[in-house]
Structure formats: structure tokens, C-alpha cells
Computed example of a mutant assay.
Amino acid sequence: MRLVTWNINSLRLRMPLLEKLTTTLQPDVICLQETKVTDELFPLDAVRALGFEHLHYKGMKSYNGVAILSRLPLSAATDTPIWYGKEDCRHVGATIHAPGGDIALHDFYVPAGGDEPDPAINPKFAHKLAFVEEVTNWFAHQKPNRTVLVGDFNIAPLEHDVWNHKQLLKIVSHTPPETERLTNWQQTGFVDAMRHFVPPQDKLYTWWSYRNRDWRKSNRGRRLDHIWVTPDLVPQLAGMNVVQDARDWPSPSDHVPVVMDFLPLS
């Protein structure tokens, strides 16, 4: 099974890029974030024309939005919480009926948190911290197994997940309150599948700001996009690829797709 996670930054605007991704990589499942489209305007026919017959999505106008596109049959999860008391379309879950057995799949778009890393004066940052805490508490009571958790978490937790650790310690996405909470979430029963293939001491990024005109030369990136798996799926991890070339596609997202290959489940 080939799984992709990607903050597409507007699905309808970037349908040609989704087609390019699908043609190039032939994924079985794609998890999208920031689809920015209401459910009634979701480009259903165009997505199905790419081969994804099985869909679960939740969206709103201009902001947020998450979607699971699958060639494999899926059953949508209907019991996921409304996080932080807001139905702002940041999480969808499903059971993927994969060869060898079912897997649970969760697709998250964690709040970005604004610019000021102080919850007392920045409601967006307070929302972000509380969101991660709520999700952590929920998973702590789930005791997950055969589960994959993906998405744009808007947090780069490790030193080499950012281009300059010391400089970004006071920048939202890499501050200690965020990274500590993300670590707590991961410790509810997950393994960082990307770092299974790339050691923590090596640089690993999935996002480059639109402000960086020559993003490759400056390489001021952050790893905001993640794939976690429960320990029982680690033996099935077969390969990982951060599709950096997608950052140079026409009218790109500032995030690039991350690909994870799984051996047949047993």
C-alpha cells in the first residue's frame, strides 16, 4: 500500500497538481489538508476520475478542510470528537480495508497558532496548544493498534526538523510548549515513521515558505507534515519519500507530499 499525506493548500485550485501527483506516484491512499472547500462543492467527479472511488472528507469555505481519498474500500469513522468545541474541519478518520487486514487512519490539520507564542495574548496559540492536548488525551484512552496517523501538525518537533534550531525556538511551530505537547501525543502509542528512515541527526523538511524565492538555495525548511504508525505496523514500513520536486510545480503548495510505502499487512 502506498500512502501520501499532503497539505494541498486549496484542492480546487491545485487539482492539476493532484493529477500530476497521482499519475507520477500511483498512491493507493491520499490524505489531504487545507482543502478549503465546502462538502457540497468538493470536486467529487474529478477526484473519482483519478481512481479514488472511496472518499471521506470534511470541509469549509476558504479555510482548513481534510480529506481521505482511497482506491481501497474504506469505512468512515463517525465517532471522532469536535475538538476545542469547534467544528472547523481539522480531522477525519476511517478504517481502510487493505490487503491483509484493516488499518485505522486519521488525517489531521493542527491549528497553525498565529505569530506570537504566548497563549495569554494570542488566542490562536492557545487554541493550538489546547487542540493538541485534547487529541493527546483522546488517543491515550484509545489504546490504538494497526493505526496510521498523518497530517500537517504545524509543529517541527526535533532539532533537525528546522533549518536553525536556536533561532526558531521562539518561533511558532518549534517552541518548547508545542514540541513537548507533540511528543506527548506521539507517546500515546505511535512511532515517527519518517524518522524510521531518516535518522534524527539528519535534516528533514516538508515545508518551505513562499517568502523564500530561491527555496532550494536557502533551504530554510521545517518538517510540519508527519506520518506516525503504531508499533505493530513498523515491520510493514517499506520506504519513505519527501517529494521535494513538488515545491517547484506550477503554483505549488508551500508543503510537499510525503509518501510512505507499506508491505502487505499480516
Rank of each mutant, 00 (worst) to 15 (best):
V47W: 07
C89R: 09
P99K: 08
R71E: 00
E34K: 09
G93W: 02
G93S: 09
I96Q: 10
I82F: 00
I96N: 13
A98N: 10
W83S: 06
E87Q: 03
D88N: 07
D79L: 11
I96M: 10
S62E: 15
E34V: 13
K58A: 10
L50D: 05
T38N: 10
S62F: 15
D45F: 06
T95F: 14
T78M: 03
R71W: 03
H56I: 07
P81V: 10
Y57H: 04
H91I: 07
F52G: 04
V37S: 05
K86W: 03
T38M: 07
M60D: 04
F52E: 07
W83F: 12
T95W: 14
P43N: 14
K36L: 13
R71M: 01
H54W: 11
K36P: 00
L41F: 12
T95M: 12
L72Y: 05
Y84D: 02
D45P: 12
I68P: 01
A98I: 14
G65P: 03
Y57I: 13
T78Y: 00
H97T: 08
L69Y: 02
F42C: 13
L32H: 03
H91G: 00
I96H: 11
Y84Q: 04
L69P: 03
I82C: 05
H91R: 02
K36T: 14
R48Y: 01
S62C: 10
G100E: 10
L72V: 14
T78N: 07
L72I: 06
I68F: 09
L69T: 04
G85W: 00
H54F: 07
R90D: 04
L44P: 06
L72F: 03
T78K: 06
L72C: 01
L55W: 03
V37G: 02
V66F: 12
H97L: 14
L74P: 13
L69C: 11
K58Y: 01
G93N: 08
L55E: 01
R90Y: 09
P99I: 12
W83Q: 00
H97W: 08
P43I: 11
E40L: 05
A76I: 02
M60G: 04
L50N: 11
E40T: 15
A94C: 13
R90G: 00
L55A: 07
V37D: 06
Y63N: 13
T95D: 11
R48V: 08
P73T: 04
D45T: 05
P81M: 09
L44C: 08
P43R: 14
L72P: 14
L41R: 11
F52C: 15
D39L: 04
L41W: 10
W83H: 02
S70A: 02
W83A: 02
M60Y: 05
I96D: 05
G51F: 15
K58N: 05
H97C: 06
A98S: 11
L69S: 06
G100M: 13
Q33Y: 14
E40R: 01
E40S: 06
I82W: 00
P99Y: 15
S75Y: 12
T80S: 11
N64C: 11
Y84W: 00
V66H: 02
W83D: 00
G59D: 08
L41K: 13
H97Y: 10
L69K: 12
S70Y: 11
K36G: 00
